[in-house]
Amino acid sequence: MYEPIRTKSVHSTMAGNTTDFPHRSREEELDIQLAGHLAALLAVTDTLRSLEPSTDLDAAAERLAEQVARLRGGTAPVRTTMTGDSKVAALHRRAHALAGRALVVAASRADTAAAILAAERMDAHAVAQAEPQELTGVG
């Protein structure tokens, strides 16, 4: 029913000698991915800091910046300060999601420091998202 493949794969011949271009190891790829997630979380944290200044966010931003720099070989991340009409609740949701992604990658590469930091940030943003509930009388 199917005809067998008679020619070599174009992918192996297109690259020619596979040592012509750099290859990254799985660890290097995970480092790049984790640094990206943490840098995005840092950007959201910096935005939240400008809207709701707190010592917790300040400390978290510094720890995130340290981890990004470590993963990028000492290169400090770009820091942002945004002001405007951003919704704080939406920023906390975004930060929670980014911290979750960072936690998954940190766990897969067994980076304990980054995993602990990501889990702490997830908890902090989950608490910030929780709305105070009012007690109402039945009646």
Rank of each mutant, 00 (worst) to 15 (best):
E134R: 08
Y2T: 14
L30S: 06
A59C: 01
L71G: 10
V88M: 04
P132V: 11
D46L: 06
A113N: 05
Q67F: 01
V104M: 10
A89H: 10
A106P: 02
R26D: 15
H92A: 08
T75W: 01
P22S: 11
V105E: 13
D58V: 06
D46I: 02
M14V: 12
A15N: 05
R24N: 04
A115I: 01
G36W: 05
V68C: 08
P132H: 15
E29C: 04
R94L: 15
D31F: 00
L48W: 02
Q67M: 13
L57C: 02
E52A: 11
L51H: 13
A130C: 05
E52K: 07
M82Q: 14
V88W: 03
G139R: 15
H37L: 02
D20R: 12
V105D: 14
M82T: 08
R26N: 11
R93A: 15
M1V: 12
A106K: 03
E66P: 00
D85Q: 12
T81W: 06
L71S: 09
P53W: 07
M122I: 07
A115Y: 01
G84P: 05
A95H: 09
I116F: 03
G100L: 11
E27T: 10
V104L: 14
P77Q: 09
A90L: 13
H125P: 00
A119F: 03
A118N: 06
L135Q: 12
L98T: 00
E27V: 04
S9M: 09
A69T: 03
E29D: 10
L64I: 01
A43E: 11
L91V: 05
